[in-house]
């Protein structure tokens, strides 16, 4: 069997049954476009979620009193830890200035304070990859044991929320991708099955002439692949239309849309995803038909 003959045969068949193939291609294109748009939104949420850990910090309150030397040692030992991105020492005087600044509209609260009740502290920023509920609690526990550190406060809930948000985005992506992919597979499956039954008589003749099942099946696999590929390419066109509509038209009304990032890498993958889903759909369709 020559592969070129299978391709010619597949293209001829696509031409003969053009309406069903066009409808099928448009359906695949819409589905892939939905995947792209979902990726677009989730990608932007993920970007925001990725920046959240930068705002996450731990506050280690120091024992009072501590010598300059002891404080320096604590800061050094914190800096040496691989999880720590940077540390910032806040003296009790700085802390009071900060507090006064924060409470500038409610000065009465601080009236009557004879001496500074605050303690010195160190603000610790962690590297992004360590801002997970398990890492933060482990790190906090270890830091708490460093001599000279009295207590440590960190936003357990915040770490959990960031983690949950990222996890949810990932799960939603997978669910959307799988559901719509299944839909695409089903569309191609149905199309190829219809084409197969329409050609039933022709297939019977080809079989009697000595065709192997491979010779009969290959053009259908190619047809499925072509439907998927065409759907993928149309999906790219649709995605570009959407992108320009959002960035040029809508962003004039809603400026925040300008900050959205479009993952163009996804577009390159679209035709390949189309081909794979198309071939899977037709493989299931012809696999279920006895040759």
């Amino acid at each position: 069997m020559t592969m070129s003959y299978s391709f010619i045969s597949a293209f001829k068949s696509l031409g003969r049954e053009k309406w069903i193939n066009i409808l099928s291609t448009l359906t695949v294109a819409s589905s892939l476009l939905i995947i792209t748009l979902a990726v677009f939104f989730l990608y932007n949420i993920e970007l925001i979620a990725n920046h959240l850990p930068e705002r996450f910090s731990m506050m280690a309150y120091l024992e009072d009193p501590l010598s300059r030397e002891e404080t320096r040692n604590i800061i050094d030992s914190l800096k040496k830890r691989p999880e720590v991105a940077n540390v910032k020492y806040i003296s009790r005087d700085d802390a009071l200035i900060e507090l006064k600044h924060t409470l500038k509209d409610s000065r009465s609260l601080l009236e009557g304070l004879d001496e500074n009740p605050l303690t010195s502290s160190i603000e610790i920023k962690l590297r992004r990859e360590f801002v997970t509920p398990s890492s933060t609690s482990r790190i906090a526990e270890e830091i708490r044991k460093i001599p000279g550190i009295d207590t440590i406060y960190y936003g357990e809930r915040i770490a959990e929320a960031i983690h949950l948000l990222k996890q949810s985005v990932r799960n939603i992506s997978i669910i959307i991708f799988l559901t719509i992919s299944l839909g695409v597979v089903f569309v191609v499956y149905s199309t190829v099955k219809i084409l197969f039954y329409r050609k039933n008589e022709e297939i019977e003749i080809i079989k009697l002439l000595g065709a192997t099942s491979g010779f009969i099946r290959t053009p259908f696999l190619i047809e499925g692949g072509i439907i998927g590929l065409s759907g993928g390419i149309l999906g790219i066109v649709g995605a570009f239309v959407f992108y320009f509509a959002v960035t040029y038209r809508l962003s004039t009304v809603i400026p925040i849309l300008k900050t959205l990032v479009f993952p163009f890498e996804v577009l390159i993958a679209l035709p390949f995803v189309g081909i794979i889903l198309g071939v899977i759909g037709s493989a299931i369709a012809i696999g279920r038909i006895r040759l």
Partner: peptide
């Protein structure tokens, strides 16, 4: 020609 394509004969 189909009978020959089935046999994998060259174009």
């Amino acid at each position: 020609a189909l009978a020959l394509h089935i046999r994998g004969v060259s174009e």
